[in-house]
Design a protein around this nucleic acid. Sequence first.
DNA 1: GGCCATTTAGTTGTGCACAACTGAATCGTG
DNA 2: CACGATTCAGTTGTGCACAACTAAATGGCC
Lengths: 164, 164
Amino acid sequence: MDTPRTVSDEDFLRLDHQICFSLHAAARAFNSVYRTALKDLGLTYPQYLVMLVLWEHGELPVKRIGEHLRLDSGTLSPLLKRLEAAGYVERRRSAEDERSVTARPTPAGTALRERALGVPRRIAAATGLPLEEVRALRARLDELTTALDTAGSAALPGDCVPDD
Amino acid sequence: MDTPRTVSDEDFLRLDHQICFSLHAAARAFNSVYRTALKDLGLTYPQYLVMLVLWEHGELPVKRIGEHLRLDSGTLSPLLKRLEAAGYVERRRSAEDERSVTARPTPAGTALRERALGVPRRIAAATGLPLEEVRALRARLDELTTALDTAGSAALPGDCVPDD
DNA sequence: GGCCATTTAGTTGTGCACAACTGAATCGTG
DNA sequence: CACGATTCAGTTGTGCACAACTAAATGGCC
């Protein structure tokens, strides 16, 4: 097969350690900063993401929330129950389609939005990066996610190097 | 009302949704690709990271592994037990310091390394990015992690806005 | 030596992520 | 209409991440 350049598997194993780990570590570091920023609101970071979606769309079926966040019911069902127990979200079976359950913010959930307005600014400050760079990084990460998703759904050709 | 220069909290709330979420999604997408790539080896992604560290260093106390991966004993203790149960790792109390427990690959664990050599190449192919870009992205992520870590330990100034 | 703070693994409890499954509702096709 | 396939939420089980804690060993200090 074509070895584009002679990068040994040994080198790859070391490099790999750095790439994947960097992403892993960055995600956890972000999570940690959000944890402290959201503690006052009584939200975890994934719960905050769900609230962002609901604040924007008002009322959504679980399925739609999952599409926005790329999460399935196995993750969302218990999460939404906790948000309901906290009084921030209402759930009910849809009348038109009894299979579907819709979630929407309660008045308390809507009020929470006001207190959440300051959070993004604090996070942005914590990154120490100008907005432009953050935006560029986001674009790069989205490309990466798309590539990984398609590669994953394409059953991982394995030794097919991406020039085809 | 608001000019492009003064970014409103509303805008931030939307932008934030994209930035933090992009990182979150990218990390999960990576995790998913690793999951399939590592299934044959019987390793999860975090277990693979631990094995990478042990392959490189031979024998390490739990504490040192945690420093390499930024993980604490609450995460590593059960993970190492599972690696031990799988036969890839040996653990034993240090003779010099009875508090410390060291872990090292068993012969089976060392042999596993050969089968793991192909993994990074498959992951790199799945990203669809040239090595240079991956390297640049890694550097950017490491900067970000460092910034987030220091901001976190500095108790989050909160209202210290970068500028605008 | 005796005492106390620190270090180190480990445990417990909570929450997220995901695979695999269940069960009910719905849809499509004959 | 009937019936099989599909869709949807939920449950179960496994594993990771992390906070808060325990328990044992160590080291410093008087």
